[in-house]
């Protein structure tokens, strides 16, 4: 379970343990699933309506496949919890938030002060993503 300051949702967290993608696809009554780096996130798309938690694992922080997985899930309309797990460091969390992650379960502790500064730092964004930020090209033209 993520620490409070590492969860950016108001709903109650699901108590159900996340199952592997294979297990989930075998018995789709589960509502929590864990995606390893390199697994095809699009296999989940037909089932999003009854999933409440998707964990996306980062085996190494430099493995950036999970950012695309998150972005694809949000583009497909997934509204449930999207949790980044594994080698998740504070300097990656701003971009993870932009890609739609709304909770974090990092291997190593995160300093709440540094995280707050990180997430507050950029007032403007150049591009659309899965967050609510309005890209500057839109701000420029009203």
């Amino acid at each position: 379970m993520a620490d409070d300051f590492l969860r950016f949702r108001d709903d109650e967290p699901t108590e159900e343990p996340a199952v592997t993608l294979d297990a989930f696809l075998d018995q789709t009554n589960s509502s929590a699933v864990r995606l390893e780096a390199g697994e095809d996130v699009r296999l989940l798309l037909p089932h999003l309506h009854h999933i409440s938690l998707i964990e996306v694992d980062f085996p190494r922080f430099r493995d950036g496949r999970g950012y695309s997985s998150a972005q694809i899930l949000r583009e497909a309309g997934y509204k449930g919890e999207l949790r980044a797990t594994g080698d998740v460091l504070v300097d990656q969390m701003d971009h993870m938030r932009r890609c739609g992650f709304d909770s974090f379960a990092p291997n190593a502790p995160i300093d709440p002060e540094v995280l707050r500064a990180t997430l507050d730092r950029y007032a403007f964004r150049y591009q659309t993503a899965a967050d609510a930020a309005v890209p500057v090209w839109k701000l420029r033209h009203g």
């Binding site: 950036g64 950012y67 971009h95 890609c99 150049y126 500057v136 090209w137």
Partner: peptide, 14 residues
């Protein structure tokens, strides 16, 4: 230049 600056999805490319 602008669109690719801090593009979040492509934070850690291969």
């Amino acid at each position: 230049r602008q669109a690719t600056t801090f593009h979040p999805e492509f934070s850690y490319l291969p």
